[in-house]
Design a protein around this nucleic acid. Structure first.
Lengths: 195, 195
DNA sequence: ATTAAATTTGAATAGTGGTTCAATATTCAC
DNA sequence: GTGAATATTGAACCACTATTCAAATTTAAT
């Protein structure tokens, strides 16, 4: 019996994030991913069924982690709705601050993947979004958020805005720090542009 | 001398918008676009240099039109900064309300195109964004917008939010009307979620 | 009607890259 | 050390599609 040499599965995922971040999903060639991961081209296929499953795995990891963390925040009655909304923004920004390539993959590929394979995309994303929606609803119920805000539209707006900012940052990280962007987002989400 | 049969250039662009909206840029096959446009495959290449130029032409049309309209609004001293910000949102929403396929192409393809070909993308987009930035700056100068708002980050946030909402709508137009989404966006951009 | 210039056609081409699989290598149990 | 089971390799395969181009078609001028 032979055993697997090391954590090739993880090496492949990490290589894939890097190659997809640089070239996009269609521009990311399997042989490039294999090369960067330090495995043979064919080995990819003993860990993942095909190219699509690799990017699905990337997003599954991301949203599973974010959902589980947000869930803990959402259930904590000691945290105010405003703080929970900020925690949501922090969670996303902290992850992408740690992994810039992942931020690019998120910003460029997720929407297209959801369009093309709505039923195959990780369910954790929808769970994360749903939890965010619950936080807004709590804020409205407790009288701190504006009840005329439509939570469904807000979630699309907020996620779109986060995505737009992260993407701009990832393309030119020198312009503004993610920390600054994060704080601006909190301001805009809470109070908008008006004084 | 033979003359060109009709407006094949326009037919090709319109077919391309439809096919790209349904299948994404990589999924949009030239022969499909040709078929829908009612021309032979080879004819595409007597109107456009290659596949890439077709989608570039789509975005050039979009942003030229939007920029020119926004420019008129921005220069009008009789319109308040708040109204100008709303006009920006209206312009984008009106165009995409008229052409749902165009909305999908915008939401799914633009970011990736800018990443892959930052220098080839239509300059009208940057001009439009710059004009939007000027509107915010005017609002800050005249004391109606919060001066601690970073206009560069705001523009990314707002465009991302608009894009996210339009995309969600285009994927499921029955959930909310674009008019409702547009009004929510105006509320959120101005006042955020707080009361 | 004839000619010439330009357009249109679509089958053939050529390059690409995801996937396969027969061969090789490695590990463990005995 | 031997054999069996599994992992790994990477060259070859093959499906796919953007692009080309020689032939056919159309139009207008004479």
């Amino acid at each position: 019996m032979r055993v697997r040499e090391g954590n090739k599965e993880k090496a492949i995922i990490e290589a894939a994030i890097k190659v997809i971040a640089e070239n996009g999903y269609y521009g990311a060639k399997i042989h490039k991913i294999a090369e960067l991961a330090g495995v043979a081209t064919g080995s990819i296929y003993s860990y993942y069924e095909n190219k699509l499953q690799i990017i699905f795995a990337i997003f599954d990891n991301v949203w599973k982690e974010l959902y589980e963390k947000l869930e803990l925040v959402e259930q904590d009655a000691a945290i105010s709705p405003s703080q929970k909304l900020e925690a949501l923004i922090d969670l996303v920004f902290n992850l992408f601050t740690e992994n810039q390539d992942l931020a690019l993959v998120f910003a460029h590929e997720q929407n297209v993947l959801i369009r093309d394979y709505p039923d195959k995309f990780t369910p954790y994303f929808e769970k994360f979004i749903q939890t965010g929606q619950n936080i807004i609803s709590q804020g409205i119920a407790s009288g701190v958020f504006n009840p005329s805000v439509n939570v469904f539209i807000l979630r699309k707006y907020l996620m779109g805005g986060i995505s737009g900012c992260i993407q701009a940052w990832a393309l030119d990280p020198s312009s503004y720090s993610l920390a600054e962007i994060r704080d601006q987002l909190k301001l805009l989400a809470h109070k908008g542009v008006n004084i």
